[in-house]
């Protein structure tokens, strides 16, 4: 792996910035270099929000994403805005509520937000469910590093819920029993 770029995009409050940060920290724990950048709007709630994570085996020069390898879109707006920007090699993972204009053979749709709601009662852990999906699809970071990064980042009283969200995300891909 030379350089891989991941984008998790959704709405403010879905935890996409936290998810990107966890992914970057997991990459570092896995022995890689990583950079996390974020884009969000001026609103404190709602609005579009996104995390970009660049992971590389060597020191990263340009810190921002240019050619996304995997886009996880958690909202219709994120999907319609960023899906067209994907290059030929880029893959889309869209939440089931999104309506992408096209879905290639390597693209997927999963009920990420609904899975988050079933676990937390809200959409707050959507980003962590997305991380479970991302990890199961790509193996971008080591699985135990991802667990550790989640544990380092989320409040301890919410750790069980977040680990459950991570596992549930992975099972959306592998099809295991919930």
């Amino acid at each position: 792996m030379g350089r891989s770029e991941f984008r998790i995009a959704g709405a403010g409050g879905q935890g996409v910035v936290t998810a990107g940060r966890i992914l970057a920290e997991a990459a570092i724990l896995s022995g890689s270099e990583a950079i996390h950048s974020q884009v969000y709007g001026p609103q404190s709630r709602g609005g579009a929000s996104r995390s970009d994570v660049v992971i590389a085996t060597e020191q990263i020069g340009y810190p921002l994403a240019e050619q996304i390898d995997l886009l996880v879109a958690l909202s219709g707006e994120a999907c319609s805005r960023y899906h067209p920007e994907l290059m030929e090699h880029g893959r889309l993972v869209a939440d089931s509520r999104c309506a992408p204009t096209s879905l290639g053979v390597r693209d997927h749709q999963f009920p990420i937000v609904d899975t988050a709601r079933s676990i937390s009662g809200g959409h707050l852990v959507s980003g962590v469910v997305a991380l479970g999906v991302l990890q199961a699809l790509t193996g971008a970071v080591e699985a135990d590093a991802l667990d550790r990064a989640v544990a380092d980042r989320v409040p301890s009283r919410h750790l069980d819920m977040n680990l459950k969200a991570l596992r549930a995300g992975a099972r959306l891909v592998t099809g295991g029993v919930g």
Partner: peptide
């Protein structure tokens, strides 16, 4: 803002 908010190893 990018330098301020970006996280690097």
């Amino acid at each position: 803002e990018i330098i301020g908010h970006t996280r690097e190893s």
